[in-house]
């Protein structure tokens, strides 16, 4: 009992500490920002100090965000003893880690598995979601609110809650250790997510277009495929991309439903990467593999930056 009270007390102290620090730091910091933006009213020196403070904050944010990935790239280009000497600037350009990773057949299998599984999952989810979200966004029927609430709730499910039941199902269907087990299980989070986001997008399409189509005698199916689909392309790309990232990164199901090296997806392969001995973790190849699977993601996210931010805030969804 005393242990519980004591440990709870630690938490309370932590929260109190954070609250007090915030109460002081955030407004102060906001002051800095507002003062800076105002173009520096008042004396020159204080204006300069405000500016310097602001840029210092910006530099810290950028450095902290980018440094770990920079360091992963830097480490992936070093091998042998160079890897175990800490250096902050690039010193070597040794591609042997990449050569090793990209000639390991199980890792190539993993990349292929991940691409295949994520693509099929996303296409399937979008296909089911387009018609469903039309019904949810555009047609009034009883129980619509309840249905949407259920879908939202499912997307926030803890995956572990379905794990043993799903394990049983996957075995029963004979899908254990195949990509289809993952396609099936990833539907749990990609489908509710795509339905929810597409519903919010579809709701914002102008009513007049649909009314015009109805006057012309178009059936709901024609309205979706001929009228709405062309307008929905941007939304489909955004939603599909976010769902793809979700499926690409998934770990729990992939770890549970695969057993052989060649069936693993990329996250599982990286997590279980092993060296010649148990003691020796192959950091160089792990970093190279990490860079290989992350660079395309970062490129995609940066290219579709604006759309992704819009999609995330529209859905208020998983990060």
């Amino acid at each position: 009992m005393t242990v519980i009270v004591a440990s709870f007390w630690v938490l309370v102290k932590f929260v109190a500490f954070v609250a007090v620090t915030t109460a002081i730091a955030v407004p102060l910091y906001h002051t800095v920002l507002v003062a800076t933006e105002g173009g520096g009213s008042g004396r020159r020196l204080s204006a300069f100090l405000w500016r310097a403070g602001f840029w210092a904050i910006v530099v810290v944010i950028v450095l902290v965000s980018v440094f770990p990935f920079y360091y992963a790239i830097l480490s992936s280009l070093e091998s042998g003893t160079a890897l175990f000497r800490v250096n902050y600037l690039p010193e070597a350009f040794d591609l042997s880690n990449y050569r090793q990773v990209l000639t390991t057949s199980s890792f190539l299998h993993s990349i292929w598995n991940s691409v295949l599984i994520a693509t099929i999952t996303v296409v399937a989810a979008l296909t089911l979601a387009v018609t469903a979200s039309y019904a949810l966004a555009r047609v009034r029927f009883r129980g619509r609110g309840l249905l949407l609430m259920t879908i939202l709730a499912v997307s926030m499910f803890p995956q572990i809650a379905v794990l043993s039941g799903l394990y049983e199902l996957v075995n029963w269907l004979g899908l254990y250790n195949t990509p289809w087990a993952l396609v099936l299980s990833y539907t749990i989070f990609t489908l509710p997510f795509t339905v929810w986001v597409l519903t919010t997008f579809m709701r914002d399409l102008p009513v007049e277009i649909e009314e015009a189509a109805i006057v012309d005698g178009a059936s709901p199916w024609v309205i979706i495929t001929r009228v709405f689909m062309p307008l929905l392309w941007p939304a489909l790309v955004t939603t599909g991309l976010l769902a793809f990232i979700g499926a690409w990164n998934e770990f729990l199901f992939a770890l549970t439903f695969t057993i052989s090296e060649n069936q693993r997806t990329v996250p599982v392969a990286i997590a279980l990467f092993s060296g010649a001995s148990v003691q020796e973790i192959p950091w160089g190849p792990i970093m190279a593999a990490s860079v290989v699977v992350t660079l395309p993601l970062i490129a995609l996210v940066l290219v579709f930056q604006r759309k992704i931010v819009a999609g995330l805030t529209a859905g208020g969804v998983k990060g």
Binding site: I61, A72, T294, V301
Partner: peptide, 13 residues
């Protein structure tokens, strides 16, 4: 863009 980088990196990575 820089701030988005950590978000884009898979959790396992």
């Amino acid at each position: 863009a820089a701030v988005l980088v950590p978000w884009a990196i898979p959790t396992i990575v």
